[in-house]
Every structure is written in C-alpha cells, then in structure tokens.
C-alpha cells in the first residue's frame, strides 16, 4: 500500500474518532445497557452455582470472570460495516464511493477501527470498572494464557469484521436486510459462547459449533483467558489452528466477493 493511501486511511480514522465523541447520550446509554447485561448474567451464574462447587470443570469465580471479559470482548467485536454498506447501496452513493482512488472497504475498516478505539475508552474501561466493583476482578489464568488470548482476540476481530463485511455485501443483491441483520446478531450472540459457554450445550450441537466460525469469536478467546485448558494441550492448539483456518478462508471469500461486487456496480452503475 502506498504512503498516500495510508495517510487517507489515517485521516478517515481520525475523523471517525471525533465523530464518535459527539454522541454523549448514546455512550451513557450503551454503558448502562452493557452493565445490565453483565450484572444480570453474573447473578444468573451466582444463583446456579448456589448448590454446586464446580460444574463442567469451572467454579463460580471463573464464571464471573468469564462474564466480565465477555462484556469487554463485545467492544472489540462491534462493527458497523454491514449497515454502512446497506445505506450506501440504498442511497446509491456506493458507486461514487467506489470511484474514489482508495479502496472503499479499506475506508469502512478504518472507520470501524476508529469506532472501536473510541469505544475502548467510552465503553470497555467503564465496563471493567463496574465489573471490578460489583462482580469480580478479572485476572487471567497466567501470562502464557493471556498472550494466547490476545492472539486469539486479534484473529476474532478479523473474523468478525470479514463476516460482517461479506454479510453486508448481500445488500448488493437484496435491499432490505434489517431482519437478516437481526438474525445474524442473535445467532452470533447465542452460538458463540458470549453469554452461555458452549460446554453446556449438548455434545452433538457442540461438535457442529466447533467447526463453525462463531465459536472463534468469543468461546476460544474466553477459554484461553480463564485457562480452561493448559496452554500446551491439544484443545488449545486445535482451537487456534481452526481459528486461523477460518481467518484464511474468510479472507479468500472476501477477496472473491469484493471482485464480484465491484464488477456488478461497474455494470449497473450502483
């Protein structure tokens, strides 16, 4: 990528951060909502563990850490790219966006990374503080676990963004996808382990989910963080390998779709 290109993306990044700072009430609302979800799950687990010490190899303290860290991960996995593509196609501005001398998807990515940067301060830190005060200090299982967690979280971010971006590209073929976006949101929320870990799911379902990309958004990073498996264990290595595999597959899918979409817009003019 040329130096001028990078400068453009940096400029987009900066502008988007400034834009994110303007909606104050939305920020408070989000913190409040995230805290409700987090506190409710914490009490849910506390109530369940009232009569049992460990279930599926974890105790209540681990489950509380899981809850806090999951709420924090959700900040890293927020992206707006699907809606961005949808409105762009809807309003017909996509053709102009694509004519510009920078990759339009690069611009969307820069915007999303900027949004997340702003959210780290507006959302992740407040959640951490509230989590520490009312639930539990989320300490990782160990330095090696924490390092692997960061690697896995980095890949989770890309997987999430690529899925969202490709999903958004459906808008080039059908227009109204509000309902579809909701389906995707709920499925990811429930099948990724973000609220309820996949260890509690029946074996047949777990076996399927382990091969789908959703589990690699929340479940794997969280497992690494709480130290569900030893660092050198087969589960750990296999998990990271499958995650990498999905990253490669989705990148290839993205590049392919990007070409298709571009030629479609070129022919029809948006």
């Amino acid at each position: 990528m040329s130096r001028a290109g990078i400068r453009v993306y940096l400029q987009v990044y900066k502008t988007q951060i400034i834009r994110s700072m303007t909606y104050k009430f939305e920020v408070y609302g989000n913190i409040l909502m995230q805290s409700i979800i987090m506190l409710a799950s914490a009490y849910f687990w506390k109530a369940l563990f009232k009569n049992s010490d460990t279930v599926k190899g974890v105790d209540v303290d681990t489950m509380l850490i899981y809850t806090v860290v999951s709420a924090m991960i959700s900040v890293v996995l927020t992206c707006n790219v699907e809606r961005r593509i949808m409105t762009s196609v809807d309003k017909g501005t996509i053709a102009i966006d694509m004519m510009r001398p920078v990759n339009v998807f690069g611009v969307f990515l820069a915007e999303d990374i900027a949004g997340i940067t702003a959210l780290v301060f507006q959302n992740m830190l407040p959640i951490l503080v509230i989590g520490c005060l009312f639930i539990k200090l989320p300490t990782p299982a160990g330095p090696a676990h924490f390092a692997l967690f960061l690697v896995s979280l980095f890949m989770a971010f890309w997987i999430n963004w690529l899925i969202a971006c490709m999903f958004g590209m459906i808008a080039f073929w059908t227009l109204n996808m509000d309902a579809l976006i909701q389906v995707k949101k709920h499925l990811i929320r429930l099948l990724s382990g973000s609220i309820i870990p996949l260890w509690f799911f029946p074996a047949w379902l777990r076996n399927i989910l382990e091969w789908l990309p959703f589990a690699y958004l929340y479940q794997l990073p969280l497992d690494l963080y709480i130290g569900k498996y030893p660092v050198s264990s087969a589960q750990c290595q296999r998990g990271l390998c499958v995650q990498l595999l999905w990253l490669v597959l989705l990148t290839m899918g993205f590049l392919f779709l990007q070409k298709r979409v571009t030629s479609k817009v070129m022919i029809q003019g948006g």
Partner: peptide, 9 residues
C-alpha cells in the same frame, strides 16, 4: 441455551 444450563444444574 437457558435450558442447556438449567439441565446441567
């Protein structure tokens, strides 16, 4: 998903 958990506990 709630049912899976409650089943366990």
């Amino acid at each position: 998903t709630i049912q899976f958990v409650v089943n366990e506990f």
